[in-house]
Structure formats: structure tokens, C-alpha cells
């Protein structure tokens, strides 16, 4: 049911976006909505991060994997359980760039005779790597529409990405990897009963939204083409705040507006969804705090001065009575 609702939602969003092909509405879908979506995206991210920044840093979590720094003859797991800032940067980089924690994914199976077996499962890691990296490549490739002159790095990436030279225009590898990885990530949720049970509407919605963006982008480049120069006039006009002439806007195909509207929807929804992990990953306490509890004194940020009654004060107060009762005192 969740699958159908989110699929329907994305299809409706796409169809609404197609309305951008009509006059007047193209101003709304081509200029106003992209700016609004970008404002919500950036503003929402800033809001979320400022929220995180207000939270006091928790006590260093010592129970991350690996041996912590201890006696000199015990080897420390420097990347899993770092005690220095460089170790933390290494652990963070491996997590952000290589998704190291997904390597711990396991699958369980009941063998004959009722034995339960666990095995490493790398498919989720592989699909996540494929999806995220191809998405980064695709985002950087899109800079050719938002910059003038186009940076050389973008050109280089385009050449490497399209090195198979299949088709006119050349099919990019990252496009195919992106779509296949997303399809796997969806099927994984849809086929596995346990995963389907814990999947929410939001999980499917984001997958379908990204798939919709990928498929409409692929169609724009390879199947139902539009005038790319007019598109660049629009996108460059958006990036430089110069606008675009209405005549140009009118020549862009509805499919482009469908693609753009899905992107706008994703941007606007981004700060309110689980996609904030893009920034939140940097704030994971088990990844970004060095385990230096035994070297540095950490004071609880919300400690208040506790009223204490020391033994000396206790004895001062009751010395006479203690003496009378024959209890030994430290000070006569």
C-alpha cells in the first residue's frame, strides 16, 4: 500500500510538473518554484543544523568497535576507536566516502537442523556506494548547465563518464549505474518481507522521486529531446539571477518541466526527510568523537554545583557528641 501511494504521489507530481509546458505556468514552474525550492532547501538545512548545534556534546562514547588506547603493549584500533583528532577525521572520511558501517551488514539464514547462520552481506553496501557516487557525478555533470564558462573539471568528468561513446548523445555510465542501483534499493525493500515490514511511506517516496528524476533526465537526453540551449539559458539565468526571455521559456518541452518539478519537490522535501543524513552523518556521536576519556577531563555541560557535606564538616558539627559516645575523631 505504501508503495502504491508513494508511486502515485510521484506520478502526480510529475504530471503536475508537465503543466510547466503551458504559457504563464512556465514562469511558475521554471523560475518561481525552483527559487522557492532552493530557499526551502538551504533554509531548512541551516535550521536543522542550528538545531543540532544547540545540543550539548554527549559524553564520549567508548563502546565503538575496536580496542581503545590503553597500555603501550596493547595495540589500539586507531581507525575504529581513535584517540586523536586525526584518527577521528580518518574514521569520518571512511564513513562518509566509503560507507564503512554498511560493510557490517549481515544476513541470517536458518540452516537444516535449525542452525542459525550469519554471513556478511555486501550488496547493500555496493548498491549504496553505486547510488551515492553516481549521483555525485550526475550532480557535477549538471554544472555544465549552471556555469559559463564551464569548469575544465566538469568537461573532464563528462569525457570519462561517457568514454564508451555509445549513442548520440553519448550515454553516460553514471546514468545507468544510478538507475540500476536505485532499482536494486527499491527491490530490496519490496522483496524482502522483513524489510518491507519496517519500510515507511517516506522510504518508498524518496526512492520513487529519485527514480523519477533519473528516468525523466534519461528521457530528456536520449529519448524525447528538447532544445538544450534554451534549457541552459533558463538554468544559467537562474544561477546568475538574470532571468530568461519568455520566448525561450516557451520553447522548452513539458518533459523538462516535469523533470525540474520533481527536482524541486526533492529539494523542498529534503530538510524534512531522512535525507538530512547528508549533513547529519558528520554529527554522528559514535563517529565524530575521539575516545579520549582517559586522557582528557570531560565536564558534564549541564552539571550544577552540588551541595556537599564533607567528613571534616560532619566531625566539626558533632565532635563533642562523638567524644562523649567514645567514637574516635580525627581532630581533637
Amino acid at each position: 500500500m505504501n508503495v502504491l501511494i508513494s508511486l502515485a504521489a510521484v506520478v502526480v507530481l510529475f504530471l503536475v510538473g508537465l503543466l510547466g509546458g503551458l504559457p504563464v505556468l512556465d514562469i511558475v514552474f521554471g523560475i518561481l518554484l525552483p527559487y522557492a525550492a532552493l530557499a526551502v532547501f538551504l533554509g531548512g538545512l541551516v535550521y536543522r543544523v542550528l538545531g543540532y548545534a544547540r545540543v550539548p556534546v554527549p559524553f564520549r562514547i567508548t563502546t565503538t568497535c575496536g580496542q581503545e588506547k590503553s597500555l603501550p603493549w596493547i595495540r589500539q584500533a586507531k581507525l575504529d576507536n581513535p584517540s586523536s583528532i586525526w584518527g577521528v577525521i580518518g574514521r569520518m572520511a571512511l564513513e562518509v566516502l566509503c560507507f564503512r558501517s554498511l560493510l557490517r551488514n549481515t544476513r541470517t539464514r536458518l540452516l537444516e537442523g535449525g542452525r542459525l547462520a550469519y554471513a556478511t552481506s555486501l550488496t547493500l553496501w555496493l548498491a549504496a556506494m553505486a547510488f551515492h557516487w553516481s549521483m555525485l557525478v550526475i550532480l557535477i555533470r549538471h554544472l555544465r548547465l549552471f556555469t559559463q564558462p564551464v569548469p575544465g573539471a566538469v568537461q573532464w568528468l563528462q569525457d570519462v563518464d561517457g568514454f564508451l561513446e555509445v549513442g548520440v548523445p553519448v550515454i553516460y555510465l553514471s546514468t545507468l549505474v544510478f538507475l540500476v542501483a536505485l532499482a536494486y534499493l527499491f527491490l530490496r525493500r519490496a522483496v524482502n518481507p522483513q524489510l518491507r515490514y519496517i519500510s515507511l511511506l517516506d522510504d518508498y517516496l524518496l526512492l520513487f522521486l529519485l527514480l523519477g528524476i533519473g528516468l525523466s533526465g534519461f528521457s530528456l537526453r536520449h529519448l524525447i529531446k528538447t532544445d538544450i540551449v534554451a534549457v541552459k539559458e533558463l538554468t544559467l539565468g537562474l544561477a546568475t539571477f538574470r532571468g530568461v526571455s519568455l520566448a525561450t521559456l516557451g520553447t522548452i518541452s513539458p518533459l523538462f518541466f516535469g523533470h525540474l518539478f520533481l527536482v524541486c519537490a526533492l529539494l523542498a522535501y529534503f530538510p524534512f526527510s531522512k535525507l538530512v543524513h547528508m549533513i547529519g552523518i558528520f554529527l554522528s556521536p559514535t563517529r565524530n568523537l575521539a575516545n579520549n576519556n582517559r586522557m582528557v577531563r570531560h565536564v558534564n555541560p549541564w552539571d550544577y554545583p552540588v551541595k556537599v557535606h564533607t567528613y571534616e564538616e560532619y566531625e566539626d558539627e558533632l565532635r563533642e557528641k562523638m567524644k562523649a559516645a567514645g567514637i574516635p575523631v580525627e581532630k581533637e
Binding site: L145, Q155, Q158, D159, D161, E165, V170, V229, K232
Partner: peptide, 16 residues
């Protein structure tokens, strides 16, 4: 003119 504007006119393999 257009190919350079839309960056599909490079001399590399992906250039149009």
C-alpha cells in the same frame, strides 16, 4: 556556438 555554450563541443570523446 551552441555546442560550446552547452558544453557538448569539447574535443574529448563526449564532445558532440
Amino acid at each position: 556556438r551552441c555546442h560550446e555554450y552547452a558544453n557538448v563541443g569539447g574535443e574529448g570523446p563526449a564532445g558532440g
